[in-house]
Amino acid sequence: MASILISGVSPRLSQASLRCSSPSRLSSNHVLFDPQLRPLKQSNSQSCKKLLRFHSKFPSVTVASHSSATSSSSLEIKNIVTGKVSNGENLKANNVPWIGSYLPSPLQPYARLARLDMPVGTWLVAWPYFWSIAMAAAPGNIPDLKVLALFACWAFFLRGAGCTINDFLDRHFDKMVERTKFRPLASGELTPFQGLCFLGFQLLLVVCVGILLQLDNLGWTLGAITLFLVFTYPLMKRITYWPQAYLGLVINFGTLLGWQAVKGTLDLAILLPLYVSGIFWTLVYDTIYAHQDKKDDIKAGVKSTALLFGDSTKKWIAGFGLTSIGCLALSGLNANIGWPYYAFLTAASGQLAWQVLTAELSSPTDCGNKFDTNKWFGALIFGGIVAGRLIS
């Protein structure tokens, strides 16, 4: 008699188990929430084999069975790993990304490769574009909504392409890091060739958006520099302890491209402080983020500012945060933005200070949560620019 035992942590169950001994064990009363486990309702031998294959790919899956005197047995899947390991620790109960529920199975690995289940990264790429587009608006006017929409698409596709090339180049390192070992290329769910084909598709979409934006020669040059930075970023963690600084160069290059798309030129008195502010902001949030993986990074032999700063991290990121706020203020002054901008900037300063002061750098969960809140910092700066421009 074949027997399989899968156990995991569950707040309601002290032990979770599934025994494949006879077809009758999997009666119609059993509810299988994950489509990948529905074949268990078939023959006994096939059920066990498929469950073993599934569990070998996703060992964090917890399957629970319980019964009572008044109710029939049921199967309950508490945690299903679909490429996103929440903040470096086990997934919380019932934390199933939407892509596992709404997308066809063949598309799900590609969606996770592009991090569609982790939208905060797209916001962090988009905000620098939005900041400069809002600053480029004429006094008394809101930003150009068409340009905002197109750059939202640009940021979405560019971020997906960046994640794909990052996972392609880091697929061997990702296998050694708890938070990333289930990514599609690291786990073998997708082949490297499939990843490269998907990358080409994403880059084609980026180019299409550029055509819709009607970028001139300067715009296409800035776009090409952006792609070069995106493609070379994954290599930085191999050669320097400052990959977070390089990431700042990558993500915030959008401040130049967004302004140029509206104005056709570059005003460096406004854009350089804005660009530098974004770089130092990135150093804050991505250093916090890197603390999730510091133990695994040491084993894998990759570098980060989290490892470089160690116990002095909070002093460093506090300095980065102050520099970022100072540069944002300087950019606003040079752009002659009205007083609401500084009110929003004060609120954003409080949000950034809260991150630095309360971050528990020894807790992967808290580091991940603090990282996620940076979409609100970006929103506060954008709201301040829009409000300040309306009365300037």
Rank of each mutant, 00 (worst) to 15 (best):
224 A>M: 15
225 I>N: 10
225 I>P: 11
226 T>P: 02
226 T>F: 11
227 L>F: 15
229 L>I: 08
233 Y>S: 02
233 Y>E: 09
233 Y>L: 05
234 P>E: 04
235 L>H: 06
236 M>H: 10
237 K>M: 08
237 K>E: 11
238 R>H: 14
238 R>D: 08
238 R>S: 10
240 T>E: 13
240 T>I: 08
243 P>I: 00
247 L>I: 08
248 G>V: 09
251 I>P: 00
252 N>S: 10
252 N>K: 09
252 N>R: 05
253 F>D: 11
253 F>V: 06
254 G>T: 06
255 T>C: 15
256 L>K: 00
259 W>Y: 12
260 Q>H: 13
262 V>M: 13
263 K>M: 12
264 G>W: 04
264 G>A: 11
265 T>L: 02
265 T>V: 14
266 L>N: 10
266 L>W: 09
267 D>Y: 06
267 D>G: 00
268 L>Q: 03
268 L>D: 07
270 I>K: 07
271 L>Y: 01
271 L>M: 12
271 L>C: 06
273 P>L: 01
274 L>P: 08
275 Y>E: 02
277 S>E: 09
279 I>K: 01
280 F>H: 13
281 W>T: 10
282 T>P: 03
282 T>C: 12
283 L>Y: 03
283 L>H: 07
286 D>Q: 08
286 D>C: 09
286 D>T: 09
287 T>V: 01
289 Y>A: 11
289 Y>L: 07
289 Y>K: 05
290 A>R: 03
290 A>M: 03
290 A>T: 07
291 H>D: 07
292 Q>S: 03
294 K>D: 08
294 K>T: 06
294 K>P: 00
297 D>L: 01
297 D>R: 02
299 K>V: 15
299 K>T: 13
303 K>L: 15
304 S>N: 11
305 T>A: 14
309 F>D: 08
310 G>W: 06
313 T>G: 05
313 T>S: 13
314 K>H: 13
314 K>Q: 14
315 K>M: 10
316 W>T: 06
316 W>R: 05
317 I>F: 10
318 A>Q: 11
319 G>R: 08
